[in-house]
Design a protein around this nucleic acid. Sequence first.
DNA 1: ATTCTTGCAAAAGATTTGCAAACAA
DNA 2: TTGTTTGCAAATCTTTTGCAAGAAT
Lengths: 149, 149
Amino acid sequence: MENEEKKKETGALREKLDARGAHFTRQRAAVYDYLRQVDHHPTADEIYLAVKSGLPKISLATVYKNLEALVDCGAASKLTYGDAAARYDIRTDHHFHSRCRICGKIADVEPVRSDALLGLIDLQAGFSIENWRIEVIGICLKCKEIRRD
Amino acid sequence: MENEEKKKETGALREKLDARGAHFTRQRAAVYDYLRQVDHHPTADEIYLAVKSGLPKISLATVYKNLEALVDCGAASKLTYGDAAARYDIRTDHHFHSRCRICGKIADVEPVRSDALLGLIDLQAGFSIENWRIEVIGICLKCKEIRRD
DNA sequence: ATTCTTGCAAAAGATTTGCAAACAA
DNA sequence: TTGTTTGCAAATCTTTTGCAAGAAT
């Protein structure tokens, strides 16, 4: 049943927070739950507005603090692809993103042979790679169909 | 001689601005010249401080407006890799960047077989790629030598 | 009991905007 | 002369911070 699944996830969050000496709170759980339930990568403000319906007194500052706590304990990640506002992602594994130039939607892109990237670029000598990010910009299927280009 | 080179570049900038109906001004040329002479990717504020020595009355807002004009006419590009402040680059051709986690230095990375990137990722069906960006994060040679890790 | 979190307001940092005077075409 | 740019100040937007009261461990 759905409640079992929810309880399991809640427990997982509790453990991750605990490992960092952070507390489990209703506000924190609400931010986490919203991030889990949406299929896109919302900004702090969007999360704030959404979560406010269940917790009317929550403040935007609390949402920011909780997002930071979630990122710190490995329960979410922060996307900073140069928009005005940062976006947050429930996934923390290594993956990339595509952005539609028309509708702005950001979708997940899975790495297939990620390490082969190194052969495609001419890096300065002696640079030790620890991580890399790829963003693909273009037009998504939905926008293409609407425009019939 | 150096003046010939400078005049040629100035002429090129004038043409690009002209094509957009934009004017060539001392302030605009100063921002452009600074971008040409540095070997890194400065923020608007750094450009402002540097250009102010030659044009003491220039304002930060003017620097922002000029950077936008330069980007618009294809004389520079804007880097938004998620820092607090955007960075500007005199190059407008397709290339990438590396960032040192220790010293924060951003260096150019040349694409070798850039189109082969498509084989490395699993993009959603129907997405038309127009452009892509890669950022490599790690430790540069200089910082590695200092730490002797 | 102790430590962390909340909510509020204020502050901070980056960037944009409105506008009259100055400048470039 | 006409349209663009400048410099200034004020405004905007995102994010952070200080702090007293409240909640979690």
